[in-house]
């Protein structure tokens, strides 16, 4: 198992390299730089001497390959660089944002899995029933709903009208603050999980071994519990892993909307100010999160399914 993890960690390196390269190239192509964004904010950096001094200070006068090489050699030593804006190490800018982001992603996923999977199961057990149709209508709606609009709706209903929950903001350890953004973020993976689970259950219920179970005299509830559920879980796990991985990136809109101090809102702010080292850092964190979740899913596979060997 430890060899498996080591190998997977090593496999992450090329992915990370590629991501770094792409961001570097993109930000050297897009118009604007940190210095010009200061200008846009109305700061007086029109003086050519000041501009060239700032560019020199941040190393922006260096050619792209040199900057890339500097960045990579720092990365190897665990140095993500220094923020142009705050002049603080990028890691220190990202670290306090990490937990809020993970908390939001996990809360959204718990909600999505906790509601979506049982709904999919119940819908599949009575295919074609009113409950089934209703669930699938809700699921399709959930998938098609724009997140920010749904978030606003939630704010309006539960914060403004009913006053049950805080409308935005973050407080460490507070559960009430996380509920609305988690619902807004979780509704689309919930819909997807409901659909995946439903089709998974319908698939497995038609499997030969389920017929064997019936021929053995196993009751339907027991059949679902003891034989179908685990087989469906293997199918659902893939979707779940991809969704948790993607949630960190999808959270950008929701984090901005709910003033959630996570990675997503940091990314938006840093892109706006062309604070490239921070952009690099946050994107790397999002990519790492995705890769780690994928690895955990693969390990979970091996635990659930004896046919899959890890190592």
């Amino acid at each position: 198992m430890s060899r498996f993890i080591l190998r997977r960690v090593l496999q992450m390196i090329p992915t990370i390299l590629a991501v770094v390269l792409i961001i570097f190239v993109i930000f050297s192509v897009v118009p604007g730089s940190f210095v010009s964004s200061l200008l846009a904010e109305g700061r007086n950096v029109t003086n050519a001497q000041v501009v060239s001094h700032l560019n020199e200070q941040f190393g922006l006068d260096q050619p792209l390959p040199v900057r890339l090489w500097d960045y990579l050699s720092g990365l190897v030593q665990g140095d993500l660089g220094t923020s142009y804006r705050t002049r603080e190490p990028v890691w220190q800018t990202i670290a306090p944002r990490l937990w809020p982001s993970i908390k939001l992603a996990l809360a959204a996923m718990v909600l999505a899995a906790g509601v979506g999977i049982p709904l999919g199961f119940l819908a599949a057990l009575k295919p074609g029933s009113v409950f089934d149709s209703a669930t699938m209508v809700v699921a399709v709606s959930g998938l098609s709903l724009p997140e920010f609009w749904f978030g606003l709706l939630l704010m309006y209903a539960f914060a403004l009208q009913l006053g049950w929950l805080p409308s935005f903001g973050y407080q460490p350890g507070s559960i009430s603050h996380v509920i609305l953004p988690a619902i807004a973020l979780g509704v689309s993976p919930m819909a997807l999980l409901a659909r995946t689970t439903r089709s998974g259950v319908l698939d497995v219920m038609n499997a030969d071994f389920v017929r064997t179970g019936r021929a053995k005299g196993v009751s339907e509830p027991r059949l679902v519990r003891a034989h179908v559920a685990r087989n469906v879980l293997v199918l659902v796990l893939t979707t779940m892993g991809l969704q948790i991985g993607a949630l960190m990136g999808q959270a950008i809109v929701i984090e901005k909307l709910f003033s959630w101090p996570g990675i997503g809102s940091l990314l938006v702010d840093s892109v706006a100010t062309r604070d490239i080292p921070v952009v690099q850092g946050t994107v790397l964190v999002i990519v790492l999160w995705f890769l780690i979740i994928n690895m955990l899913v693969d390990i979970a596979y091996a635990v659930i399914d004896p046919r899959i060997k890890v190592g």
């Binding site: 064997t212 021929a215 005299g217």
Partner: peptide, 20 residues
């Protein structure tokens, strides 16, 4: 079923639960 009457199917490869 299973107690007084039992059945053996054609496909042994898929007739058993792969996860148990």
């Amino acid at each position: 079923r299973g107690d007084r009457m039992a059945m053996v199917f054609q496909e042994p490869m898929t007739a058993l639960n792969p996860l148990a």
